[in-house]
Write a protein that binds this DNA or RNA. Sequence first.
DNA 1: TTTTTTATATACCGAACGGTATATTATGGA
DNA 2: TCCATAATATACCGTTCGGTATATAAAAAA
Lengths: 189, 189
Amino acid sequence: MHENRQNIINIALNLFALKGYESVGVQKIVDHAKVTKPTLYYYFGNKKGLLDAILEENFTVLIKDLKGKINLDKSLEYNLAIIAHSFFEYGKSHSLFYRFQLNLFFSPPENETHKTVLHFNSIIFGVVESVFHKEFGLTLNRRVCAKYAFTFIGIINNYISLYLSGLLALDDQAEKDAVNQFLFGIIKK
Amino acid sequence: MHENRQNIINIALNLFALKGYESVGVQKIVDHAKVTKPTLYYYFGNKKGLLDAILEENFTVLIKDLKGKINLDKSLEYNLAIIAHSFFEYGKSHSLFYRFQLNLFFSPPENETHKTVLHFNSIIFGVVESVFHKEFGLTLNRRVCAKYAFTFIGIINNYISLYLSGLLALDDQAEKDAVNQFLFGIIKK
DNA sequence: TTTTTTATATACCGAACGGTATATTATGGA
DNA sequence: TCCATAATATACCGTTCGGTATATAAAAAA
């Protein structure tokens, strides 16, 4: 039951990630999934509903993982390593989705797709920011904590982008490199 | 003479940056520019030709500025500051284009638009990499220099993204912050 | 002045777009 | 067994897509 629903989601993610959301028509999706248009519209209402389902399904995995593994009683270094590890493992296991999600994040602000992905990104951002707020909340204001979170996630995404381009392996060394780049820059090793 | 050509370029960049290349039809461009389709096709051949003209016109400015200001006889810190300054000034004076260019860079790899922007990005990348190669070329291999260049540009883009979202001012302090983040991380100030 | 080239408009093309009215087939409960 | 609902298909909707054949106006060259 509902196997068509899941199949449509999988097929659509593949096409979206490879060609872009706007470049893939509903007809092409249902052709690849070997169903017809009314089936897709029965499950998702419209094309945007299909996109929402894809985002919901895939982002939930990462968000739950991050929330479950972060431990605010431990050190900043510990939690940054945990975050880097979660992101990198997720990037490897959901590489198609990660590429697609990056694409949506950098899509134009008036595009409806941008706003949807922003919702999930702000959740992730809040989780990462909590780590900095616990560490620096008494000495630095919230704006600086937010900037740290944004910068750290930026460096993480930078590494994952390199991985997605085939230029880097997301191994233990890369996790350490990312955290060290953020904490100490390129000078100290 | 050719005022229609330039007008089409300006109008199209505005629409592309706000709604996305795929989401803006040729008809909408010519309507806004108050010309007709054959005029656009006379100057640019097709929609992709229009995109190429936009990229060429705008990237040339940044690339020439970078090449002109980098001085390989001076220190790494000096050149990184120069690069950050050029990027930030460019981001402020060409903010619409910068947003659009980021969007294209993160667009799906099979999309034709991605490949075009990659060409200009690799030129910029080469310029930045030359700074690291001059500094570390004897002690570090090319892969590490390339990674440094990629990371530094990533941090720069991170800052410009914050600016484009209205979350940060691209002032002198931001330039220093970006370079320090790259060189020394968040610890040393 | 005539001719050629440049620049623009009218009117149209087939294909693809997102979406739906309606019919049909399964399926599970009463 | 009957009926309601869930799930799928056929065939179609108006609109917009990128692109063009053709005509025309303006300007430059002959």
